[in-house]
Design a protein around this nucleic acid. Structure first.
Lengths: 188, 188
DNA sequence: CGATTTGCCTAAAGCCTTTAGGTAATTCCA
DNA sequence: TGGAATTACCTAAAGGCTTTAGGCAAATCG
């Protein structure tokens, strides 16, 4: 070791911050090197490729998000749990748009930590569903419905799709969560 | 005019095909020039920039999709209309993944044709909702819910998120559409 | 204290974007 | 009909990002 000390870890963290500032797609090995004031080639000792850098950022984001989701769901059930979980995703996407976008990045060969975080997410959704009375395969269907709707809403909202009509997307959001809650209560 | 005749129109069309082959993100002015066997710079007489090319492809896709959706919804109502509409989106995404991805591209300053197609889509969803009894603002909420869920599902499915657990995502899909239908019938 | 490892550097090749400035063929019209 | 204007595509060039190869100096290990 020597000098300042770039590491894969540090690069992923800095990359996550950069993503929030300039957008996940604009995160490049070059831009990151510029931030650290070092030559581009230096980073290639720590990340295998541009895709590898993005994958690491994705893992950071996915893990961070799982941590928050976990906290939000703890001690809550049914509607309260659903609402808290959904809000965590949405708030995270608003505060950390770059990181949230990173979350959708599918690595060529995901790190174990990445896979773990992915599993934690689906388990959290299943935990929320314990408050409703669903057996398989309905439970899996419900996991997919929830994931689709929440991720879909966040994405369309951030793309500005809801910005040009009333009511505000802030108002629609809780009503849509309510609707999902109702739906889950009476899932055929 | 002269020779073969590249036009913005033709480039958008060829770009759409290229997108389906290699992915929307891999569509570049260079790649397209290669396909046409001309120098890269030549294309810049017809498209303003790489972003402009992508925007044109997006417009082609959005319009194509609106046409199909329109056909699918015609003569159907309620559940049948909802299911047909959702299937059009999903089938299009599967047959034309590059074009479908293009659909999510938000142009800096959208062409009128692009805006029109966007409007057609939301009007089609509202048409489907005529089969249910919703007044404003519930109707807008429902439009957003439907859009979020359908786009979200398609996206997660194409990212492979549903590929590693039972039941198959083909089986979940109709059940999720059913659930949405039920939800709309009893929207608070 | 010498050998090894670590950390960052220079160099270079390859691909993509975009602008500038032609050139030949076609079309318009006096 | 023939010169002017336009059209369609080209060469040249600058600048950015990615990635590999090879090098040197500082820190650490034995």
């Amino acid at each position: 070791m020597a000098r300042a000390g770039l590491t894969g870890e540090r690069l992923a963290q800095a990359g996550a911050e950069l993503a929030d500032e300039v957008g996940f797609d604009q995160v490049t090995v070059s831009a990151l090197a510029r931030q650290f004031g070092v030559q581009v080639a230096s980073l290639y000792s720590h990340v295998r490729s541009s895709a590898d850098l993005k994958a690491r950022i994705a893992t950071v984001a996915l893990t961070e998000l799982a941590d928050r989701a976990s906290t939000a769901v703890a001690g809550r059930a049914s509607r309260a749990a659903l609402s808290a979980l959904a809000d965590v995703y949405r708030d995270y996407a608003r505060k950390h748009p770059g990181r949230y976008a990173a979350t959708r990045f599918v690595p060529d060969s995901p790190a174990p930590e990445h896979v773990d975080s992915g599993r934690r997410h689906s388990e959290l959704v299943r935990a929320v569903l314990r408050g409703y009375d669903l057996d398989e395969p309905a439970q899996t269907d419900a996991v997919r419905l929830l994931g689709s709707t929440i991720h879909g809403y966040i994405q369309l909202e951030s793309a500005g799709t809801f910005a040009f009509s009333e009511p505000s997307s802030d108002d629609s959001w809780p009503r849509i969560i309510d609707a999902l809650d109702t739906l889950l209560r009476s899932w055929s």
